[in-house]
Amino acid sequence: MVSRIDETFGALHGKGEKALIAYIMAGDPDIQKTQSYTYALIKGGADIIELGMPFSDPIADGPVIQKAAQRALGSGTNISSILELVRNIRRAHSTPVILMGYFNPVFKYGAEQFFIDAEKSGVDGVILPDIPLEEIGAVTPYAGKYNIDIILLAAPTSGRNRLLQLSKHTEGFLYYISLTGVTGASKGIDSQVISSIQWLKRKTQKPVAVGFGISTPEQAAMIAEVADGVVVGSAFVKLIESHDDASNDLLAFAHALKNAIKE
């Protein structure tokens, strides 16, 4: 079955464009703001929206996303309020929405119930950074049944055989982590990462999007030369952190990123 994420990558490919995947934390600073921020990102040119589901102990995240999660939890955000937010976004937009979060809150909600409700709300994909291929059985039966893409992460430490495995099992696209580290680190783009993505692109038909540590239009442009999409997160979250109303800045920054990866 062709998902909304597949369609988006297909349409962009037809136009010779690359996808801008914009991440913000749901509920940071509150759910109403997240809704207007999402609209601003879409207006600015984001092709896919990725909403973080906050967790108290985010082991793969740097300080920027950690603090965003704390703000979101402080405003009372939970899975139910995030699914309601997606329902509201769906009334206005058909842009794919991906939820990204750690497994424990999903497990506590009930894995099957989560996917039932996610489908009803119009969620297209889920990224669970602490569910590697080894544990994927905890979610795939339900994700498949309720038509939600499970997007897998690949890392610079993933060997080539494993990259092939990951690209085979991922749905929608493969999320390639551009650095050995946590979200928001600024290590620059490693040339080995570029060659690894080029190798992978020759081996797989699945779209590859690259994220973690991409914060400028220049870096995004560099990635877009080899990948099908660019994920930007911490840089958007920083704008939210430093503005009472970040809508205009989010729109402008999304626009700058989208322009950079078009060329």
Binding site: P129, D130, E135, R162
Partner: peptide, 12 residues
């Protein structure tokens, strides 16, 4: 039990 960790750590 199991191995509920980010992909980056799997090889290690």
């Amino acid at each position: 039990g199991g191995m509920f960790v980010p992909e980056t750590l799997i090889s290690a």
